[in-house]
Amino acid sequence: MIIQVPATSANLGPGFDSCGVAVSRYLTIEVKEQQEAWYIEHQLGENIPTDETNLLLTTVRKICPSLQPHRLIMKSEIPLARGLGSSSSVIVAGIELANQLGKLKLDNQMKLELATAIEGHPDNVAPAILGDFVVSAYFPERTTRSVLSVKQSFPTCGVIAYIPKEELLTKTSRNVLPEAFPFKEAVEASAIANVMVAAIVAGDLALAGEMMTADRWHEPYRDVLVPHLKKLKQNCLAWGAYACFLSGAGPTVLILTPVEQTDTIIEKLNKMSNNEAEIIPLTIDRRGIKVSE
């Protein structure tokens, strides 16, 4: 059995902890023979555990602790601590692995509830499970349906990821956010997010992109940690991009472009980056979790 989970980009600017989109980089888990202890084969570096302390297996054991251990092969195209949902993809894969091996018959809502409880918010795990663009709200005090999500088809466009070589941990990126927000500013920030979602639903990427680039919730505070963001915004918008925004907690920046201008903007970004970042074209993943035999 092979389980494949897409990378995700959360927030999309003003959709903080709520909006996310699945993109075409993948975590792949291949399930091999049964054995006495869990073991994960991978080439992801010495810091990634191969035993039950791996996030994949802590998730599996939390969902279904009685499972017979297997040998697993883990491959990931999703860079760690870059804002593309690397940990969320592992959590989602762990839930699906428990679901398949334990024959739990979990539906997407159940998977979403479990993943959000583990991750803490649904903006990454929802599109990883469902695919495409998902808007979610989390109500942890509820005992049933604590996560409400709506999947929407994201308009066709070019998607470019500007992935710096250095990591930025989510915890570090969250530490710069304010503890309180003035009411007037919160109303303005909320209005920007509302218009962004409405514009995506209407297929108006020019307006959606304008709102994505006008975030008030987190990007103004995270500028200090991602000094490349301001210059990328200025240049990419001047080159004709729809939007340029921090992917999740960063440091990756996602750029949305008209399809016909994507290659030109990638070429310009490569010249600008001076080999300090990986610049890759992506597509929107419409499917989410994929399980195959």
Rank of each mutant, 00 (worst) to 15 (best):
residue 14 P to D: 04
residue 16 F to W: 05
residue 17 D to W: 01
residue 22 A to V: 04
residue 25 R to N: 11
residue 25 R to M: 15
residue 25 R to K: 15
residue 31 V to M: 09
residue 32 K to H: 14
residue 33 E to M: 10
residue 34 Q to P: 11
residue 38 W to I: 00
residue 40 I to E: 05
residue 45 G to E: 05
residue 47 N to M: 09
residue 49 P to F: 05
residue 56 L to I: 08
residue 59 T to D: 12
residue 61 R to Q: 15
residue 67 L to Q: 06
residue 67 L to E: 10
residue 70 H to N: 14
residue 74 M to E: 11
residue 83 G to D: 12
residue 87 S to P: 13
residue 89 S to A: 15
residue 91 I to W: 01
residue 96 E to A: 07
residue 98 A to Q: 00
residue 100 Q to K: 09
residue 101 L to A: 00
residue 108 N to E: 09
residue 120 G to V: 04
residue 120 G to C: 12
residue 121 H to N: 13
residue 123 D to G: 07
residue 123 D to M: 13
residue 126 A to R: 02
residue 129 I to E: 02
residue 130 L to M: 11
residue 130 L to R: 02
residue 130 L to P: 00
residue 133 F to N: 00
residue 140 P to M: 07
residue 142 R to S: 14
residue 145 R to W: 07
residue 149 S to F: 04
residue 155 P to Q: 07
residue 155 P to G: 08
residue 156 T to W: 03
residue 163 I to L: 11
residue 163 I to Y: 04
residue 167 E to F: 09
residue 174 R to Q: 13
residue 175 N to D: 12
residue 176 V to H: 04
residue 182 P to F: 12
residue 182 P to K: 08
residue 183 F to W: 11
residue 187 V to M: 08
residue 192 I to W: 00
residue 204 D to E: 11
residue 205 L to A: 01
residue 205 L to P: 00
residue 206 A to P: 01
residue 209 G to K: 00
residue 213 T to A: 10
residue 217 W to V: 04
residue 219 E to H: 04
residue 224 V to K: 11
residue 227 P to K: 04
residue 227 P to Y: 06
residue 227 P to H: 09
residue 229 L to G: 01
residue 235 N to T: 10
residue 236 C to L: 08
residue 243 A to F: 05
residue 243 A to T: 09
residue 244 C to V: 11
residue 249 A to G: 15
residue 249 A to E: 04
residue 251 P to M: 09
residue 252 T to V: 06
residue 253 V to C: 11
residue 257 T to M: 08
residue 260 E to K: 08
residue 261 Q to C: 06
residue 262 T to A: 07
residue 268 K to S: 14
residue 269 L to M: 15
residue 269 L to T: 02
residue 272 M to C: 09
residue 272 M to L: 14
residue 275 N to Q: 10
residue 277 A to G: 14
residue 279 I to S: 11
residue 279 I to R: 06
residue 280 I to E: 10
residue 280 I to A: 06
residue 282 L to G: 00
residue 288 G to N: 09
residue 291 V to G: 03
residue 292 S to W: 05
residue 292 S to C: 10
